[in-house]
Nucleic acid binder design. Structure first.
Lengths: 152, 152
DNA sequence: GATTATTATATTGCATGCAATTCAATTGCG
DNA sequence: CGCAATTGAATTGCATGCAATATAATAATC
């Protein structure tokens, strides 16, 4: 009977860390929205740009591994970024299966406008960098354990 | 110059807690997938069922406030749950603007099958209940601060 | 009590995510 | 070398999320 009650408790929405994560992801998205609107980006597009601002001329696969996204998500997203003149998609000559993603000059330039975004997010989170960093590390560790289970 | 470098560091993908949250949400979703497939539910549908298992016969609005979702998301989702015979949607007689959501007997019964889900998730997270609960509280506090900014 | 404002839900359009499939290119292996 | 297996993208279909709008019902205000 005690075991049954424990199972009931665990089914409560507010006791589930997955819902905490889920709802916080959406809250972040809503905070980002007005900031990214000014850049003409959606949040997933912003993530792709973050990857490219770190390193350019990478195959779609690499971006996908970095962001945990597959081609079904990335292909149309990248086409929209290309239509916005932020990136260029080129079939690799080395390996014609790969499509290399490079920033255009506009894509490079957008980085300057994006520099203030993290500050705004930090302010909205009303949290010190140290606290956020500690939380981030815990969450990433959790994510990696979940992904490890999936790889089995 | 130091300030510029700090802004650059903050633009790094791996330094952003939002990406930690975002990618962990997707990792959770992938871990849940096979478990929820057995129940015939998607993850957002599972969240709605969690709400309803706690309290029945509630208007769409209440579910939305609980899950931070609007009618644009909930209406079609609820129609799919109704098509699956898990819930019933009824226009309230008290206030005809409202649609009340009630569980069917099958919706009630599904709770028994769902009881084992949280245990499986706990196992996949490879974490103690205490640690998870502490993380959850921190994340919820962050979410609430973000939502507070949005309300301004 | 009539008019206006607000509220609850529904609808439309767009951008993810992801499973499943397809297709072309490359790798492996005998 | 020749062929099967694998790989990287693209495509299709379905289910979110959310902004913007529509609509009907209730509340508020004069």
């Amino acid at each position: 009977m005690a075991r049954k009650q424990a199972a009931d408790l665990m089914l409560r929405l507010d006791n589930q860390i997955c819902f905490a994560i889920y709802s916080t992801a959406h809250a972040f998205n809503r905070v980002y929205k007005p900031l990214l609107d000014r850049l003409g980006l959606t949040y997933p597009q912003y993530l792709v740009m973050l990857v490219l601002w770190e390193r350019d001329d990478v195959p779609v696969k690499d971006i996908g591994e970095r962001l945990f996204l597959d081609s079904g998500t990335l292909t149309p997203l990248l086409k929209r970024l290309e239509a916005a003149d932020l990136i260029k998609r080129t079939r690799s000559t080395e390996d014609e299966r790969q499509v290399l993603i490079a920033l255009t000059s506009q894509g490079q330039a957008l980085r300057e406008k994006a520099r203030s975004v993290p500050q705004s997010i930090l302010a909205a989170s009303a949290c010190s960098i140290g606290e956020l960093s500690a939380m981030k590390n815990e969450i990433v560790a959790l994510r990696d354990r979940l992904n490890a289970v999936l790889g089995e």
